[in-house]
Amino acid sequence: MNLLQQVKSLVAKDLSLEWRSKYAINSILLYVVSTVFVCYQAFKSVDIFVWNALFWIILLFASINAISRSFTQESPFRQLYYYSLASPKSIILSKIIYNTLLMVFLSAIAYLTYSIIFKNPVGDALFYFLAVLLGSVSFATVFTMISGISSKTNNNSTIMAILSFPVVIPLLIVLIKLSHNSLIGADRSGSYSDILVLLAINVITVTVSLLLFPYLWRD
């Protein structure tokens, strides 16, 4: 099988596993909705700075929770079985694609719930949604590799947080700037450089993950 076919069947495998248990989706949805509701109870109404910051914090923790399991949800023996069938490149690529799909779905729902419960002050809704999409893709690409690294350690979740926060802060800085611009309805042409930086970071992370993962999976 070539790389493309392997990736396709691995993504299909992950999707059907998720579809059978619906564990990740349901737990993260519950997490997002309850966090939004707690924030609503605490704040009632917020100005746009806090609105933006709260949304990204909720999305950040939701994505860490969703993605940190991506290499530990299946038993080590089954992982070994996959490694004997597929090349490590196709495994990491399939995980990145699957996590991207999962994150896009989750962030769309989070955005919807968030703007229904809190009053939505977004000036340029389409552009804000683009920022959310870019953010979820960036989280997925960065966290997939980090979860691969942290799955090799014993205390997975702590190490996951420690390793991923410094790496994801540059992304968050750009994302918050981009989403703030669309929130106040600023001119779109001013944000193109931010989008370019985000895309560049994503390309770099995916390339570096593809190069490094073959060294990582072997024990």
Binding site: V142, M145, V174, D194, V197, L212
Partner: peptide, 25 residues
């Protein structure tokens, strides 16, 4: 091995953080 992987993974993002983002803001 694992720390080498993380080191290489984090380096390009650090370059973006220190040398590209400040130029934009």
């Amino acid at each position: 091995k694992i720390s080498a992987v993380y080191n290489i993974f984090a380096f390009p993002i650090m370059i973006v953080l220190l040398y590209i983002l400040p130029k934009l803001t």
